[in-house]
Design a protein around this nucleic acid. Structure first.
Length: 352
DNA sequence: CAGACGTGGCT
DNA sequence: TAGCCAAGTCT
């Protein structure tokens, strides 16, 4: 058990100094942090791995070097740039947040947790991360990594998510006054590289000698988690429609909800049982000689599986009556197509 | 407050 | 293969 939090923090920071990773959003030692880059990276990293976020971060910062640049961009450009990263509400909130900061806040991010918490898309974790990393002020950062480290060090056996408040309170008892940003990143790095979910590398851990879970031999079992509900399957039919000019019919999804504001290949509703012939005809964007393409597009969202059949047709003279936007096939890359829709596109291109 | 909300990589 | 997992937030 850790009985001297000051010594534990120093030990962790020393470990961090020797194992600091070079990440695109991380400032060099001694270099002043840019709150915009810290904020942008933290939003992108929510529920997202470092390798997945890194290229997006590079693209965003190259295109929009400041929060004012981002706020000045059309929302659709931001959604196109975000396409493929997932959790699209983050992109919409990112844009809203940029408007607020560039507008009423005069281009400066709040430098307190309470102030940051007011911003769209910024919750407890992100507020603490920006406070400590961007502004060098003390804050207790608790993400999934930190929860795991704390659950193990203190051998907390109650399951997540109910035990979150307790883990945060325990984490706060360890947070030092010195080097807030480095400490926050050290805790997360420790969880990401040493105190990993499976096969933790306890031999490399700066806190191994104080770890209660390790002492009890239960480090791989912690943190315990409540069982998750299994995912239902929904089914639908997507419509691949080409006009005489070789353009594809796409639509913009509703601003709220799943894939909100993103572009899609038109489809029937996604329901537990596949739509029958009549339903497919009724929901088609146009009367046409629809023919079924072989195969199935499968995709898994956070809370359900999706199976899409694809039907294809060439639109006749009345093609202008279809609702949506016609996009030439070679310009689909400029659309805000989420991954599931990219799968549909690839499937149609391969089989149509 | 439990459920909605993406994706890709790893085991 | 099927499930688990990643620097969470919003409603």
């Amino acid at each position: 058990m850790i009985n001297d939090s000051r010594i534990a923090a120093e030990r962790l920071l020393t470990w961090y100094d020797h194992h600091r990773r070079d990440l695109p959003w991380r400032s060099r030692p001694g270099e002043e942090a840019d709150p915009y880059r810290v904020w942008l990276s933290e939003i992108m990293l929510q529920q997202t791995t470092v390798p997945a976020a890194a290229p997006y971060f590079r693209n965003f910062t190259e295109r929009w070097p400041t929060v004012r640049d981002l706020a000045s961009a059309p929302l659709d450009d931001v959604l196109v740039a975000w396409a493929g990263l997932g959790y699209y509400a983050r992109a919409r909130n990112l844009y809203k947040c940029a408007q607020v900061v560039a507008g009423e806040l005069g281009g400066r991010f709040p430098d307190t947790e309470a102030g940051l918490l007011e911003l769209p898309g910024v919750g407890a974790y992100t507020a603490a991360a920006i406070t400590s990393i961007a502004f060098g002020r003390k804050a207790t950062v608790v993400d999934g990594n930190v929860e795991r480290v704390i659950a193990r060090v203190f051998a907390v056996e109650e399951p997540l998510p109910n035990v979150k408040p307790k883990l945060k309170a325990l984490a706060a008892t360890l947070t030092p006054d010195a080097r807030p940003g480095d400490y926050a990143q050290a805790m997360m790095d420790l969880g990401a590289t040493v105190c990993t979910p499976r096969k933790p590398k306890c031999m490399l851990c700066p806190w191994a000698e104080w770890c209660a879970a390790r002492a009890a031999g239960i480090q791989e079992e912690l943190p315990r988690k409540a069982a998750k509900a299994d995912k239902p399957t929904r089914r639908g039919v997507a419509y691949w429609l080409l006009n005489p000019e070789g353009a594809v019919l796409l639509r913009r999804r509703a601003e709220e909800g799943l894939l909100g504001g993103m572009t899609e290949v038109p489809s029937t509703a996604w329901t537990p049982t596949a739509p029958d012939e009549a339903a497919v005809r009724a929901q088609a964007p146009l009367e046409a000689g629809w023919r079924r393409l072989p195969g199935t597009v499968r995709h898994t969202f956070s809370h359900f599986h999706l199976e899409l059949e694809v039907v294809a047709a060439k639109a006749g003279d009345g093609w202008r009556r279809a609702e949506g936007l016609w996009v030439p096939v070679d310009r689909l890359g400029g659309q805000a197509l989420p991954s599931v829709m990219m799968k549909v596109v690839r499937h149609a291109l391969a089989h149509a």
